[in-house]
């Protein structure tokens, strides 16, 4: 009986350790995920400043979501004092760029593609110089 109790105690001890380990691991995972999102948020804010001042009451973000995706988000107050928002996602593919707005896809014009490329170059330069240049 004593032996069995000892086995049970050891068993419970291992379970609790595993449980704690999982919780800590999950928290660490969540912390790093949050950190990563914060990096993207900071990039997006900086990216939004590349195109000049944002009108009062508006908001603009431009960022690289991943190596194949660029996002433009704009909010503004229209002439009727109504809040408007538009999110544009650019999907970079080997044969061209697709633009997604309100769930609808369309190919970008050569002019827009060129502007996107120039903006992305400036964005990359500034993000590296201003956000990550002092990172360890």
């Amino acid at each position: 009986m004593l032996h069995l109790t000892g086995v049970k105690v050891t068993h419970y001890s291992i379970m609790i350790k595993k449980l704690l380990s999982n919780i800590l691991s999950q928290r660490e995972e969540q912390r790093r995920a949050e950190l990563y999102r914060n990096l993207i948020r900071r990039e997006a804010k900086l990216g939004g400043q590349l195109f000049g001042p944002v009108p009062k009451g508006g908001r603009r973000e431009f960022f690289c979501l991943d190596k194949n995706t660029w996002v433009w988000h704009e909010e503004w107050i229209d002439a009727n004092r109504q809040h408007q928002a538009r999110a544009t996602r650019y999907d970079v593919r080997p044969n061209g760029i697709l633009k997604a707005q309100n769930g609808q896809y369309q190919a970008v014009t050569p002019e827009e593609a060129k502007k996107l490329y120039e903006a992305a170059q400036l964005y990359t330069q500034r993000v590296k110089n201003e956000l990550y240049s002092f990172a360890v």
Binding site: K67, V92, I97, T124
Partner: peptide, 9 residues
Amino acid sequence: AMPLLRQAV
């Protein structure tokens, strides 16, 4: 991302 974007452009 940049070379991929350039290729697509």
